[in-house]
């Protein structure tokens, strides 16, 4: 008896192999998008965004600072959904199948990428909402504006954060044996990240996850005459602070923060990844993370 089976090295085999990944991605993607948690998170984020409006008597910049962290529930939801998907990887299914764990992990990761579109959409919604409100308020007289808008660099953080959310969910889902234990860990991580003022000190600002600007730069004691400061500076002073601070929005800081987030995401993905390819991910992540932190340290005023 003789049997001929087309091998994967044959042209037909290679075509089949190329089709496997999209098919897996489609299946995983459908499962991920059916998970209600990210959509509940999105609803909470939109709700939080809509209720963040400038109010008379607010801390100078309160509404501006409050807008960015509203993404946290969405990020938490994305992490939970991705963790559920990667947690399935802990169960050995068809270990002898030709599609090995690295490709399955890649399919799960690619399947989660539509969530980056959702985070980008949320960033666009923030931009639209701010324009609809006519801008947010920043600073106090005489250095004040009522038409502050988040820069593209600041908004781009949402997409990078989406990637971190995916990578964090993948890492915890793959490495923690119980989903019930993943949930509190994700919650604490994202809601701590949401508490942005924890990272207010200059030494820890580059390590923040959700970075909120403006950065306060001390410019003088309480006795300083604010009118003597450059007219284009946004200012905050007594009684809100002990002296006069410049409220600085730095686009370069925001871009370098994105680099740090990309590095962080790759490091987390390395944790989630099967042994094949893990080192390369970790090395790339480490390089980007260090570059991002150093870049922020250089540009931070």
């Amino acid at each position: 008896m003789s049997t001929t089976v087309p091998g994967l090295t044959s042209p037909a085999g290679r075509t089949i192999r190329r089709r496997v990944l999209p098919a897996l991605v489609r299946t995983e993607s459908l499962r991920l998008l059916r998970n209600p948690v990210p959509w509940l998170g999105l609803a909470l984020s939109v709700w939080a965004l809509w209720t963040t409006v400038p109010e008379p008597g607010e801390w100078p910049g309160s509404s501006y600072e409050g807008v960015t962290p509203t993404v946290a529930p969405l990020l938490f939801g994305i992490s939970v959904a991705v963790a559920t998907t990667f947690h399935r990887g802990r169960t050995e299914v068809a270990p002898a199948a030709p599609v090995q764990e690295a490709r399955r992990a890649l399919a799960r990761l690619l399947a989660a990428l539509p969530f980056l579109v959702v985070t980008a959409g949320f960033a666009a919604l923030i931009g639209w909402r701010e324009h609809d409100l006519g801008g947010l308020w920043l600073g106090m007289e005489p250095g004040r504006t009522t038409e502050a808008f988040h820069t593209v660099a600041e908004l781009s953080q949402h997409v990078a954060l989406g990637l971190v959310a995916v990578a964090l969910g993948a890492a915890l889902g793959r490495r923690v044996s119980r989903l019930a234990a993943v949930l509190p860990a994700l919650f604490v991580l994202w809601f701590v990240a949401m508490t942005y003022w924890l990272f207010g000190a200059r030494s820890v600002t580059p390590f923040s996850v959700i970075q909120v600007q403006p950065v306060p730069v001390p410019v003088g004691p309480p006795s300083t005459d604010p009118l003597s400061l450059p007219a284009d500076w946004l200012l905050v002073g007594p009684p809100h602070t002990s002296g006069w601070d410049r409220q600085l929005v730095s686009e370069s800081l925001a871009w370098w923060h994105d680099v740090w987030l990309l590095g962080l995401a790759l490091l987390l993905l390395a944790v989630a990844w099967p042994s094949e390819g893990r080192r390369r991910l970790a090395a790339a992540g480490l390089v980007l993370a260090v570059l991002g932190v150093v870049g922020q340290q250089v540009v931070i005023p």
């Binding site: 509190p184 860990a185 604490v188 809601f191 701590v192 924890l198």
Partner: peptide, 30 residues
């Protein structure tokens, strides 16, 4: 770590403690 960070910031840590309460409670139930 987080509460230590909050302590160094000098701001009221109620938000952080609320997160800690929920995180700890979820861990215990888990």
């Amino acid at each position: 770590l987080v509460v230590g960070l909050a302590g160094s910031s000098g701001r009221p840590a109620d938000t952080v403690l609320a997160i800690a309460a929920a995180g700890t409670a979820a861990t215990v139930v888990g």
